[in-house]
């Protein structure tokens, strides 16, 4: 049977979904790419610059858009999956709008949701004006203005690591991996925008796991004099002047530290996307203790699900940076090609 007669449905048109779609289309498979938002690209659309080299994220978006520019890819934006039937290794899938017919394989690339920072009420997101998330800060970078709600330039900015990650209190035991380096990147960007500002990162552990991350960390210290305080922020309040007061312990000194800041940035972590979790019952797939989809093997089966013909790509299986997401998506394409050539 010719590849063209094989049909693959990819759920999620973010980085992983698009990269896998491009690869598989070039192999000659017919692809239906379902994206719930109005345009493809996913979370990266919100980001301004990427670590570790601070290239503009639009460059990567361009790459992704080129990937899916292929006659065999049917991109359906603003669409969500509705019904699934699974029989003899084939899926019949319909969206709310149309019937996609039979699929020989399905790739889940539903990605992640950012942690809802209002759940950590002690940090005051949604309560105090100038407590923002890392995503809000990216939006500020887009607009070019980093201002408090009173339209003032912040003189001192605090950055809180591990918000919604490594936290038993919100049921997320895992490390979201990318927040540490995001904090370093954003600290540098703040200093770049406002050279005479002070930036303080409050961290539990600095996890610089990727290539050139440690170098970025060094740069932040050497070139930008970003301050790092080892201690988890546990309370935020507002004083009469409307400045934020944060309480932490400077654990390396063994003394509590109190500090006023004009703006507090919460490094919100990753958790499995609600949209992805909604597919759980439809496909009969499982999640691990970290809430992400459970892969068949941690080392050599990290694109495989517990259902034959159903594959995963990207951050629906674990927190990942963009590099790893792209590699993971390409690996998924290889797995799917192999699976379809056997069946």
């Amino acid at each position: 049977m010719h590849n063209k007669e094989k049909h693959i449905v990819i759920i999620g048109g973010g980085t992983a979904g698009c990269v896998a779609a491009g690869r598989l289309a070039r192999e000659g498979y017919r692809i239906s790419l379902i994206e719930k938002d109005k345009k493809p690209g996913g979370k990266i659309n919100n980001w301004y610059q990427l670590f570790p080299d601070r290239r503009r994220s639009v460059e990567v978006t361009d790459y992704i858009n080129k990937e899916i520019d292929h006659p065999l890819i049917d991109l359906m934006t603003g669409t969500e999956l509705d019904k699934v039937k699974y029989k003899n290794g084939k899926f019949s899938i319909s969206t709310g709008k149309s019937d996609l017919g039979q699929a020989d394989a399905v790739l889940i690339a539903t990605g992640f949701d950012l942690f809802d920072a209002t759940r950590k009420e002690e940090y005051g997101y949604g309560i105090y004006d100038n407590v923002i998330t890392s995503l809000d800060l990216e939006n500020m970078f887009h607009s070019g203005d980093i201002l408090t709600t009173k339209e003032e330039i912040p003189k001192r900015v605090g950055i809180v690591h591990c918000v919604g990650s490594r936290d038993e209190k919100v049921g997320n035991f895992h490390c979201s991996k990318v927040c540490c380096v995001t904090a370093v990147k954003q600290a540098i960007e703040i200093k770049e925008h406002i050279p005479d500002s002070e930036v303080f990162c409050f961290y539990m552990d600095m996890r610089m796991f990727g290539p050139y991350y440690e170098e970025l960390y060094r740069e932040s210290q050497e070139k930008w004099v970003v301050n790092y305080i080892r201690g988890k922020v546990s309370e935020v309040s507002e004083n009469i002047e409307g400045r934020l007061v944060i309480k932490a312990e400077d654990t390396l000194l063994g003394k509590p530290i109190r500090m006023e800041v004009d703006m507090l940035v919460l490094m919100v972590g990753m958790q499995n996307a609600k949209a992805g979790l909604n597919l759980q019952d439809k496909f009969g797939i499982q999640t691990g203790v970290n809430g992400f989809f459970r892969i068949r093997d941690n080392h050599y089966g990290n694109n495989l699900s517990n259902v034959d013909g159903l594959f995963y790509a990207g951050t629906c299986t674990a927190p990942m940076n963009i590099t790893d997401t792209i590699s993971h998506a390409r690996a998924a394409a290889v797995e799917i090609t192999e699976y379809l050539s056997k069946n």
Partner: peptide
């Protein structure tokens, strides 16, 4: 209540 600032506010 210091951990739920929504209340004193």
């Amino acid at each position: 209540t210091h951990l739920t600032p929504g209340i004193p506010i």
